[in-house]
Design a protein around this nucleic acid. Structure first.
Length: 871
RNA sequence: GGGAGUUUAGCUCAGCUGGUUCAGAGCACCUGCCUUACAAGCAGGGGGUCACUGGUUCGAACCCAGUAACUCCCA
């Protein structure tokens, strides 16, 4: 059978993914084994795979595959999020392209379009994840608007309302005039903007005096209902309680005094617009000011503004500045840089706006969530994120959960015609309740038009995917889940709230560990985005480098919490690695075994001993790496195990003479070692490892590496590992002599050693094999006419060939002598320091003395070598 | 404005309790090789003011103080 010299991923990927699915290896049902659960961070239902998903899901797949091999009942639950505002925006856009306005449609008709869109585009991303090799239990795929999930969200709302945790109130909220909806604080992005600071003149009534107010939003004077100064401010003390005229508007308002005002900022005078600023609203409440809502939901000036009605806020800003100037009321206009909030979704400037919304009271709810992260019941990786989590949780604000959208979970509040409301699961229940609460009322009930914030459904994800609100069957087995892998950007949106919901509804943490991935950036450090066009298509990458290659590429440079500068060459490295493994397989496969040949060669015997010791060492190392969620180190350690230890050393050590097969004993040991290595590789490179694993030995139907057992280490003699270093140094010594003197590798050499240095190491047969040494001679005294090198105090000699260059050799030895003498003097300096000798621990002292001794010995050797050559 | 973090090779990063010949890894780079698995490879090699300044200590990349630059989060 001819095996291609390059690994061809495409066929292997399709074949083994289908096999895994067919055998149901990814499916999980509760049983006696301990559960290991991951719930996927549900991507937007109509989203497509981007590099962030690749990273995130590769990590999850590595974790879940390893857990599966370690004997856990591994369950990775996939699913999608309805993504209220993002999806609705897309549907609106699509309809607009077809000439249909959302406002022309009924709610029902619009939702029909939305569902149609969802069914058409929904789940594409899940299909893409399969290409990556994601081992999700696809039977469990959930959607946040599934019937049962929807019910859970509604029940949660009703429950929290009944507990007094949800209230309805008029507050200043972040208003997105493009999407025409309220946003939570987390959906607002602050950007640095070059704008202007306008200094406006407010005439004091009944006087020639005026005061000056500085503002960046002059159009909001239409809603001014007071002017405020700091009570300590001497400049304005005489004006407290006086009236001023709002410029242009000519509304008469009072000057109030409150220490909220910063005397240093601007002129120390603040205009108060309770309907359009968070802090002004607070002042408005405190001093019972009139509230004038001068803006429509689309950002144009409302009737209440009295002027500029119907014009856009930014047009008005320009115009009003001109008009104020014309009226002599604009004192100056200076450039000013400040931060302005933008909508995460629509990227328009957020308008603080007074409106009636639903809120969750977070104070009490959030307490266990803070406590259990700070005491490490829930662990964050890296732990630095605990800081910002703590800061946020300690200053948590109430959560605005209503959105003026249609796509989502409709708020289960029902209004009477006279403005009372009833919260109930359904209209029928609401009607029942209405009868007892308002027995006189005979009119109808109308459900709240708004839907809930998307995160109000996804915060239930780890519970709801197991139908945990309605049945204990699964949730009691799978919950709490093991690990959550997500981006730090959604720590507050999602992670914190899942923890809150977990304690509220299960009285338990939702997951034990949270692994925060970084942001995938391009080589220049820019965030990958559609508009920059700097994001490669993940599927194209998979096609080019193989899924395994891309997985390796993603993991090679991404410690938890660090941003990842993605470079396609990393995938190339991954592909090359796959090819390296493939060729190791070809080599072993090509050797085959000879069952007649019973006696293993000396070199092979030590190779097997050492490789097993090394494997055990690496297995321990990997387990430690995984425990600490150091995925990239686990990968790098596996990479070096394969490339350096297995390919560069082990396979060379056991390599039979050309044309011969391996003896039976070495062959079976090699296959076993290879299998273990494939097991360790499987979480990173599932396809390649399965492909080789299936071929390297006869397998029964239904066997698979993905359910094979993760290897455990056993204690081995450390001596094998110690001796190995001297061995490799010896081989390198021989190679260097060959290279420096242009001695071909094919040319066999004689090696001489001094018998006074003791017996040969157990590795000596391997030294001869790799160094192409035909004989090793023991000498009683230093042989003349030889190249030599020193390994750990032992000198090796190789007879000169005709190309020997005395000058070069002397130079090299001289350099080494200088270095060693320099080193010796540094060590001696330390040892001569009395304070070091009296203070340092014995261990450190001994070590320094050993260094001194070794260096002295080496110097003696080098000096005799130089003397011998100089003759 | 408030908070957190980072700074080690050309790049991306390790360096765990201050002490091992400790200054490391991978990639990149340089030199030589188509050596009977792999040129997507093999063998060898160069490369550092551990951001800066001071302090603590017998001993500092590591601890402390200050300075600078960058990044992120929050308002």
């Amino acid at each position: 059978m001819e095996i291609p010299s390059k690994y061809e991923p495409q066929s292997a990927e399709a074949k083994w993914y289908a096999y895994w699915l067919e055998k149901g290896f990814f499916n999980s049902v509760p049983d006696d084994r301990p559960a290991y659960t991951i719930v996927i961070p549900p991507p937007n239902v109509t989203g497509v795979l981007h590099m962030g998903h690749m990273l995130n899901n590769t990590i999850q797949d590595v974790l879940i595959r390893r857990a599966r091999m370690r004997g856990y009942n591994a369950c990775w639950v996939p699913g999608t999020d309805h993504a209220s505002i993002a999806t609705e925006a897309k549907v609106v856009q699509k309809l607009r392209a077809e000439g249909v306005k959302k406002s022309d449609l009924s709610r029902e008709a619009f939702l029909e379009h939305a569902w149609e869109w969802t069914h058409k585009h929904g789940g594409i991303i899940l299909e893409q994840l399969k290409k990556l090799g994601a081992s999700c239990d696809w039977n469990r795929t959930r959607f946040t608007m599934d019937e049962k999930y929807y019910e859970a969200v509604i029940d949660t709302f009703v429950d929290l309302y009944n507990k007094g945790r949800i209230y309805r109130g008029e507050r200043i909220i972040n208003w997105d005039p493009a999407a025409k909806t309220a946003l939570s604080d987390e959906e607002v992005i602050y950007k640095d903007v070059q704008s202007h600071l306008y200094h406006l003149k407010y005439q004091v009534v009944g006087s020639n005096e005026f005061i000056v107010v500085a503002t960046t939003r002059p159009e909001t004077i239409l809603g001014d209902t007071a002017v405020c100064v700091n009570p300590k401010d001497e400049r304005y003390k005489h004006l407290h309680g006086k009236k001023v005229m709002v410029p242009l508007v000519n509304r008469v308002v009072t000057i109030i005094a409150d220490d909220y005002v910063d005397m240093e900022f601007g002129t120390g005078c603040l205009k108060v617009t309770p309907a359009h600023d968070m802090n002004d609203f607070m002042l408005g409440q405190k001093y019972q000011l009139e509230i004038i809502n001068m803006m429509n939901d689309d950002g144009t000036v409302s009737e209440a503004g009295g002027m500029y009605i119907g014009q856009d806020r930014f047009a008005v800003r320009k115009q009003i500045a001109l008009d104020l100037d014309a009226a002599g009321l604009l004192i100056k206009q200076e450039p000013y840089s400040n931060k302005v909030g933008y909508s995460e979704r629509t990227d328009v400037v957020i308008e603080p706006r007074l409106s009636m919304q639903w809120f969750v009271d977070m104070k009490e709810l959030s307490k266990p969530a803070l406590e259990n992260v700070m005491n490490d019941n829930i662990k964050f990786f890296p732990p630095k994120f605990k800081n910002s989590y703590k800061h946020w949780m300690e200053n948590i604000k109430d959560w605005c959960i209503s959105r003026q959208l249609w796509w989502g979970h409709q708020i289960p509040a029902y209004y009477t015609e006279d403005g009372n409301w009833i919260v109930a699961k359904s209209l029928e229940e609401a009607q029942e309740k209405c009868k007892s609460q308002y027995p006189e009322y005979t009119g109808g009930l109308k459900q709240d038009e708004d839907v809930l914030d998307t995160w109000f459904s996804s915060w239930l994800w780890p519970i709801a995917v197991f139908d945990g609100f309605y049945s204990e069957d699964e949730v009691s087995y799978y919950y709490p889940t093991a690990d959550l892998v997500t981006a730090p950007e959604i720590m507050f949106f999602w992670v914190a709230r899942m923890i809150i919901a977990g304690y509220e509804y299960r009285d338990e943490l939702p997951f034990r560990n949270v692994y925060y991935t970084g942001i995938v950036r391009d080589k220049q450090g820019r965030k990958m985005s559609k508009s920059l066009g700097n994001s490669p298509d993940p599927l194209v990458l998979i096609d080019q480098y193989g899924a395994d290659g891309v997985r390796v590429g993603m993991l090679l440079s991404s410690p938890a919490g660090n941003d990842l500068l993605f470079d396609e060459s990393l995938c190339e490295q991954g592909r090359n690695f796959a090819n390296k493994i493939w060729n190791a397989f070809r080599l072993v496969n090509g050797w085959g075994q000879n069952t007649e040949k019973a006696q293993p060669r000396g070199s092979a015997v030590v190779a097997v001993q050492w490789m097993n010791a090394r494997l055990n060492q690496v297995i321990d190392q990997l387990n430690d790496d995984y425990d600490k969620f150091r995925m990239n180190e686990a990968l790098m350690n596996t990479y070096k195990l394969v490339w350096d230890d297995f390919c560069a050393w082990y396979l060379e050590m056991v390599k039979p003479p050309y044309g011969e097969k391996l003896d039976e004993e070495t062959y079976s040991a090699t296959i076993e070692i290879f299998e273990k290595i494939l097991t360790l590789l499987h979480p990173f490179m599932p396809f390649l490892s399965e492909e080789i694993w299936q071929t390297i030995r006869d397998r029964k139907e239904g066997e698979s590496l993905c359910v094979a057992q993760w290897p455990t280490s056993y204690s081995t003699d450390g001596e094998w590992l110690d001796g190995f270093e001297a061995f490799t140094e010896t081989v390198i010594g021989i190679r260097n002599i060959r290279k420096d003197n242009a001695i071909a590798n094919k040319e066999k050499l004689v090696l001489k050693v001094l018998s006074q240095d003791g017996g040969l190491s157990a590795y000596h047969a391997a030294v001869e094999h790799l160094g192409n040494i035909e004989a090793t001679e023991m000498c009683n005294e230093k042989p003349a006419g030889c190249y030599s090198f020193i390994v750990k105090g032992r000198e090796f000699f190789i007879p000169f060939t005709e190309k020997f260059d005395v000058g070069a050799e002397l130079k090299k030895l001289g350099e080494e002598l200088n270095y060693t003498e320099d080193f010796l003097s540094k060590v001696r300096l330390k040892l001569q320091n009395e304070r070091f000798v009296s203070n340092a621990p014995q261990q450190v002292l001994d070590l320094e003395r050993k260094k001194e001794e070794d260096a002295l010995h080496k110097i003696t050797l080098l000096k005799t070598q130089i003397a011998a050559l100089g003759k």
